[in-house]
Simulated scan of single mutants.
Amino acid sequence: MRSDHVRLFQTLPHACGYFAERTAQNLVIDPASPQLDQLYGAALERGFRRAGGHLYFPHCASCHACTPCRIDIAQFAPDRSQRRCMKRNADLQVIESMAGYSTERYDLYERYLRHRHPGGGMDEADASDFRRFLTAPWSPTLFLEFRLGPRLLGVAVTDVCLNGLSAVYTFFDPEEHARSLGTYAILQQVELARRRGLPWIYLGFWIKGHPKMDYKRRFRPLQIRTSEGWADLP
């Protein structure tokens, strides 16, 4: 991906989703480009992230907290807590499904947002928000569904690229918090990457010490992208 071949736009300052007192800006690859599907893998390698039909990278003047990170599949081994998580959810069926809207998925998504993001605007998402945020016409997306019998407990929205998986978003039944379904979703994506012979899972951004983002350091060996390229997180 070369800047002379791909147009980049910078967004206007907007409220930061991680620090209430800060503003943020992103670099966005031209969303009208007909080559977004071909650019996606290279964009992941350079630390970009997909949200809906946009590929973006944080580009804030006074903050550099958002650090792209990825799991090294060949080297990853679950720790004791992660092994317990897998055992705790051994009764679930994991189904690779086509991405897209359904009433069942949307109802679960809505309940998850109401519980996790009350009063923040996201908890008012409608069906069009579901489609616009989680999928894009050009994205190689599948939904990993976690079911207890016929009941849908969680969905991991996963993009499957030639150079790895991108863990886009996970939503699950907030009443099933004891199952640690967020951790389980990442572990199942590790298994998916292994089945498909893919070397990386791109987890988006790690923020050191952030209560909602620091959990990613538990998936070791975790690599972070620095100004000099990818390196293992100490």
Rank of each mutant, 00 (worst) to 15 (best):
L153Q: 08
L142W: 00
S180L: 03
A156S: 14
H59Y: 14
P68T: 07
L162K: 14
N89S: 10
H117L: 06
I29F: 06
R46A: 14
Y56E: 06
G182W: 13
D79Y: 11
W138T: 01
T11A: 03
Q223V: 08
V6L: 13
L39I: 14
R151L: 10
K212Y: 03
A24F: 03
R84K: 15
A51T: 12
L152K: 06
S33R: 10
D129I: 07
E145P: 11
D37V: 04
S102N: 08
Y18C: 00
D232N: 12
S33P: 11
P118D: 09
R105Q: 07
S97L: 08
F9A: 06
W200G: 04
L187D: 10
W200R: 06
L152R: 05
R114D: 01
R194A: 13
A127T: 15
I224M: 08
I73S: 09
L144P: 01
Y56N: 01
A24W: 01
R80E: 12
I186L: 15
P150A: 14
R225L: 15
A193F: 03
R49E: 00
R194L: 08
M86V: 12
E124Y: 07
S139H: 00
D30N: 15
A127S: 14
C63G: 05
G197W: 09
V190S: 02
H54Q: 12
G120K: 12
H5K: 14
L113S: 05
P137E: 11
H210F: 08
R50E: 04
A20S: 11
E104R: 13
I71D: 02
K87F: 09
R218C: 11
P31I: 08
A136L: 09
E21F: 07
Y202Q: 05
L233K: 00
G164S: 10
F219L: 07
D107S: 10
M213I: 08
R220N: 10
A127P: 05
A65T: 11
G204V: 01
Y101R: 04
F130M: 12
G121Q: 05
R105C: 07
A167S: 14
L113K: 03
L134S: 00
R22D: 10
Q25V: 06
L187P: 06
W200M: 07
Q188T: 12
T141D: 05
S128K: 13
G121I: 04
Y40T: 01
A125Y: 08
E104P: 07
M98R: 15
W206R: 03
L92T: 12
G53P: 07
A77Q: 15
G119R: 02
L39R: 04
A15E: 12
P58Y: 02
N26I: 00
G197T: 10
S102P: 10
Q35I: 09
A178W: 09
V94H: 09
L165A: 12
D214E: 11
Q10L: 14
L222M: 09
Y40D: 00
E45A: 15
K208C: 02
E176R: 15
K216C: 04
C85H: 08
D4R: 09
P211I: 02
A125F: 11
D214M: 01
Y202G: 02
R80D: 11
G197Q: 09
Y169Q: 09
W206D: 00
K216S: 03
I71S: 02
